[in-house]
Amino acid sequence: MLELNNIHTSYGPVEALKGVSLKINQGEIVCLIGSNGAGKSTTLMTISGILKPRKGSISFMGDDIVKTPPHRIVEMGVSHVPEGRRIFPRLTVKENLEMGAYTRSSKLKVKSLKFKDQLDKVFELFPVLKEREKQMGGTLSGGEQQILAISRALMSEPKLLLLDEPSLGLAPIIVSKIFKAIKGINQDGVTILLVEQNAHAALNLSNRGYVLENGMIALHGMGEELLNNERVKKAYLGE
């Protein structure tokens, strides 16, 4: 579904990604783990087109998307939940979700559900949002904001969901709730690329995982395989 081939991305003279290649198949949950500054978020931003790679190719459903502008990539079916949630704090929950459906009115977008049905679907998945429908986004708790950010991304009916550290700054019990929800979204037919610091939880959830170190893929394998890998254990799981 998505294939990155030898991607190099830099911020000015600093090269953050030094040849990242990875592959995601339809229906999978793939996680990308690594320490701070390894290039996890950069990888996501490169996929969603916010950053342009200096070298390499990205193909999504067979189309090369390196030169595609970010809004077009969303229309193609890749939704990005940015790091730190970035909901619209002064808009209500419902308006946030409406904003998420922004691309739906464009002609290019193929949609299977009506806006109203998509909204109901999201409310069904996260009933807490229905309760808070008229509340300002900024007044929600951190966990609810994360849920809102994910839901907003779902409103565009993505085929591939890019999640950037959904567990950031949340209590363990909320994290497990969110991870359960991610699993549910995946079972609904959305492919997921998950970027996480919380390696244990992420690897447990995912089919496959990649370990990113200093802008390069250091390891990759099945979720369980990586969980039992000595190197991963030492570096990320603290065992």
């Binding site: 970010p70 970035r86 909901i87 922004y102």
Partner: peptide
């Protein structure tokens, strides 16, 4: 209109609006 809605999104958060598919 759609244009006004995009403006509001950009004013509120530019990164978020490009992530929901607005041509900022």
């Amino acid at each position: 209109s759609r244009i006004g809605r995009a403006w509001v999104a950009i004013r509120e958060d530019e990164i978020a609006s490009s992530s929901i598919g607005i041509n900022t």
